[in-house]
């Protein structure tokens, strides 16, 4: 079994490991780095429970090899809160009852965060389309949409919305 060295930044912290090239990014995060907030739900990139940001773009970490992500900046649910202060999306999911079992929630929050970075004032339909790669079995999505809208209001009001890390996608 050959291994390759990966080094990447996870939630601002440099991290590295020697991994089998076939290791999935989600398993690197969960099993090697102990960041178990990112979940595996479907294995076939349908459910989005494993959504994280890779260089500012939301990605399904069960469909990315760890070696592919080497050199990247990763953001996971564990990197959303600022110390004891919840990210506005985390607060909004709590306020609006946007979660029940909580299993899809980290992926849903990460995808919503990316969505609001792209589109700070989405319509409800745009929110629904924006989270269409994430499945929730509990909530029926109504309160998730409300939560994303609450956070959209707060993020734009505070003008604290992070600028999309578009470095890798603006070459066109």
């Amino acid at each position: 079994m050959t291994t390759q060295h990966v080094s990447l930044t996870v939630n601002g912290q440099p991290m590295e490991a020697d991994v089998e090239p076939r290791l999935l990014l989600v398993h690197l995060l969960r099993d090697v780095f102990g960041l178990t907030g990112t979940h595996v739900g479907c294995d076939t990139s349908n459910c989005g429970a494993c959504t994280v940001h890779v260089d500012g773009r939301s990605a399904k970490s069960c469909t990315v090899l760890a070696v592919q992500a080497s050199g990247s900046e990763i953001r996971t649910i564990e990197g959303m809160a600022d110390g004891a202060t919840l990210h506005p999306l985390q607060q909004a999911f709590w306020d609006q009852h946007g979660l029940q079992c909580g299993f899809c929630t980290p992926g849903m929050i990460m995808q919503s965060a990316w969505l609001l970075e792209q589109n700070p004032h989405p319509t409800d339909d745009e929110v629904r389309e924006g989270i269409s790669g994430n499945l929730c079995r509990c909530t029926g999505y109504v309160n998730i949409v409300k939560a994303v809208q609450q956070a959209a209001g707060q993020l734009s009001a505070s003008e604290s919305a992070p600028v999309a890390a578009a470095a890798t996608v603006d070459a066109s």
Binding site: R57, S58, A59, K60, V64, Q111, W114, I131, G133, N134
Partner: peptide
């Protein structure tokens, strides 16, 4: 195509 994450990558 696919969903937003798929279109991202």
């Amino acid at each position: 195509i696919g969903d937003p994450q798929v279109r991202n990558w």
